[in-house]
């Protein structure tokens, strides 16, 4: 009897960890969850279509070699209007996204572009996040001359606009392949995250739990990575999502300018650049890559917004009309 009561009370009052609360807030945010599912779907679809390295994908055309024949003048063969609506029925056809001027299957090219932009996002955002977090954490934790040196270094990189340094780095590494381009770009994209993490560390390092850890004999590295960093994770994750969205745009822009991914490999930005003059005659060569640049970036932005709300729900709680009409409500909310 007593035993059962205790369990019930325990269940009722069982605290939820901060991480669980955040996860719950994120999962209940419809826009972000839908975006996340769609984004993963697009990436899985694109990567499995082309295959990874030596593993072939399920799509039967290659993104480099022209097909033997040009079907329907290179127009997209995909049809989405069913017959009972007066259309031609739902089918993909030989070249669903059409073919480019020399007859290369455009579906394969676009999917290869999506795959490349995925590689850029993961590597660029990964490198930039790790580097920025470590630099910001060290600067904020040690303060003093370490902070001064690291922050001046950050200033140096901020002074050069990312597109400019990206162009130079791209011109140096463009021929090496997408992985090198992404990693080098990551090496020059960490400044924003470093500043945010530093600011967070400057305030967190004064808190009692840091003192407690130090009294318990924890080393500096342990305090930084085991005690303070988990508390600063919100800032890091949100900033990483913003970098990921910016990475799509940066890669596309660089490839558009001719400094990013170079032929025979392909990129969405490169496809837009190659085909913008054919806009009037073959608009699909423009629309498909444009769609796959904008939509993933948009989805990542929505996910980032959901993450921000999940980590910092305070921002959402204000309504001017509510404060005006029901002051006591505003009191509770703020």
């Amino acid at each position: 009897m007593t035993n059962a009561t205790t369990t019930v009370t325990q269940e009722e009052t069982a605290g939820q960890s901060q991480g669980r609360l955040i996860l719950k807030r994120f999962v209940t945010n419809k826009a972000s969850m839908v975006s996340l599912v769609l984004l993963v779907a697009i990436w899985v679809f694109a990567i499995s279509a082309i295959g990874i390295g030596p593993i072939p994908g399920w799509w039967h055309h290659d993104y480099r070699t022209p097909s033997a024949s040009i079907v329907e003048g290179g127009r997209p063969t995909v049809s989405l209007i069913p017959e009972w609506l007066g259309g031609a029925g739902i089918y993909l056809g030989e070249h669903p996204f059409g073919q480019n001027r020399i007859g290369v299957d455009y579906f394969a090219q676009t999917m290869r572009g999506v795959q490349n932009s995925f590689v850029v996002i993961v590597l660029l955002a990964g490198v930039a996040t790790v580097l920025g977090t470590v630099i910001g954490a060290v600067a904020g934790y040690y303060r003093g001359w370490v902070d001064a040196v690291l922050m001046r270094m950050t200033d140096v990189f901020i002074v050069i606009p990312s597109i400019v340094v990206g162009a130079v780095v791209g011109a140096m590494t463009g021929g090496l392949g997408v992985q090198y381009l992404a990693i080098f770009l990551g090496l020059v994209a960490w400044m924003g995250i470093a500043r945010l993490v530093r600011a967070e560390f400057l305030s967190l390092r004064e808190r009692e739990f840091v003192e407690a850890a130090r009294v318990a004999g924890a080393s500096d590295a342990r305090i930084i990575f085991k005690h303070i960093l988990p508390n600063a994770m919100g800032v890091v994750i949100v900033a990483a999502s913003l970098i990921a969205a910016a990475a799509i745009i940066l890669e596309a822009s660089l490839s558009f300018l001719g400094y990013g991914i170079l032929p025979p490999d392909t990129s969405l930005g490169l496809q837009v650049s190659q085909n913008q003059s054919a806009f009037a005659t073959r608009p699909w060569l423009f629309w498909f890559p444009a769609f796959f640049i904008v939509v993933p970036a948009l989805l990542i932005n929505f996910i980032g917004d959901g993450l921000r709300d999940a980590f910092d729900p305070r921002q959402k709680r204000f309504s001017i009309r509510r404060t005006k009409e029901l002051p006591e409500n505003a009191e509770q909310r703020s």
Binding site: A245, I248, G269, L298, F302
Partner: peptide, 18 residues
């Protein structure tokens, strides 16, 4: 504004031109 965040300026420029 989210859409504009996600729209690279070269795409916007080409669309404006066309």
């Amino acid at each position: 504004s989210f859409f504009l965040y996600s729209l690279p300026s070269f795409l916007a420029a080409v669309l404006l031109k066309e």
